[in-house]
Amino acid sequence: MKSLLALATALALAATQIANSEPLRWKSEGWRTDFTKSTVDLDRVLSGGPPRDGIPSIDDPKFIPIGEETSLDENEAVIGLKINGDARAYPIRIVTWHEIVNDTVGGVPVAVTYCPLCNSSLTFDRRVEGEVLEFGTTGKLKDSNLIMYDRTTDSWWQQFSGDAIAGSYAGTFLKLLPSRLQSWSEFKAENPDGKVLVPNNPRLRDYGRNPYAGYDTARPFLYDGQLPPDIEPMERVVVVRRDGEEPLIVTLNKVREDNGLREGDYQVEWAPGQRSALDTSQIAKGREVGTITVQKGGRDVPYDVTFAFVAHAFYPDVAIRKD
């Protein structure tokens, strides 16, 4: 019995040492991050495979007028952003290979982000405590979600929640800005004078190919959390971010089947015409999923269209409406 107890104690100590060694190992990768300041269990941070900046952010984005773009399918997904009259489209066929675009739109420094494993497209104001930050990819994930870092302090930031989870900025939240995951044709119709992102180097990546073919009908990848009850983990859900309140989470199917959803001052609508970027090997040939818009008082508000397992991981106490 004593030997078994000693063995169990030794194994527990070894596990603790391995867990505690993670920040040391990350330090050996060159991180200047202050890992003594964190808001999450760092043991749950996983390597996504690529090293820091192995998925390179776009820091000097190049745009052309929408009338000059001829390669995009009408129903391809783009992230549409409009600030102070400056309208820009960020095609998922490009952003899926870079995940972060550091840009300035309508005079506002922004980070346009996309995490393919979560299908989460979110746009943030890059200004924090009077400083403009530039973001890159850590190569790390938590709950299958992209962890970004800022190049000023090496603090780590969770893309889905927009907060710093480790480093000197730990506990700080980025301001979320309204943007739309929409079809290219819809963006063009709404913004005839808009611009569209094009690759700085068209040969850098196989733009237009989906490196995650079949993912949105598979299983969560690099995910060690709990799956949501009574719903398929990869079902698309709409997460409406509401100031001062818990988010509204509803399945995309419910919004579509009910011809929209009204919740207080929030109006959620679905329209056909957008293809999934995570279905077939060619993004332009993905199946129809449609476009969600969310407004409050006639103005766009921040929202996301993600998978049920992601919403449950970050908001485990918020029910997903599906009936």
Rank of each mutant, 00 (worst) to 15 (best):
G48L: 03
T306P: 00
L204K: 15
D206V: 13
L13A: 14
V237C: 07
K195V: 04
P65Q: 10
Y149T: 01
G49T: 00
Y266R: 12
R236F: 13
P91A: 12
G136S: 04
L197H: 00
T172L: 07
T251K: 09
A308H: 03
L197D: 00
S121H: 12
F124A: 02
V105G: 01
T217D: 14
P109G: 08
T123I: 07
I92Q: 11
T172N: 10
D143S: 13
A311V: 01
W157E: 03
F135M: 05
F187N: 00
L176N: 11
L122F: 06
V108C: 10
E76C: 06
G107P: 06
S120V: 04
V40F: 01
I55M: 05
G260I: 04
S57C: 07
Y207G: 03
T123S: 04
P233C: 09
E232Q: 14
G264P: 08
G290E: 00
A164N: 01
L248V: 12
L7T: 14
K140A: 06
S71K: 15
N75F: 13
G139C: 03
T39D: 04
G85V: 10
G139L: 06
R126Y: 08
T39A: 03
V301K: 01
S168F: 07
A12H: 07
K142P: 09
Y212V: 05
S71I: 13
R127T: 15
D243N: 11
P65E: 12
M1I: 12
R275S: 11
P220F: 09
V108G: 09
Q17H: 12
K142S: 14
G208R: 03
D193N: 14
F160R: 01
L222I: 15
G67N: 12
L177Y: 02
V40R: 05
P233D: 10
R256S: 00
S185Y: 05
E22N: 14
W31C: 00
S28V: 10
K188N: 00
D279P: 08
D279Y: 01
L204A: 15
T104E: 10
G54Q: 07
A189K: 14
L122C: 03
P109C: 09
L248Q: 10
V301S: 03
G264M: 05
D243L: 11
G167V: 05
I64G: 02
Y169Q: 10
V305H: 05
R88C: 02
G130S: 07
V301M: 04
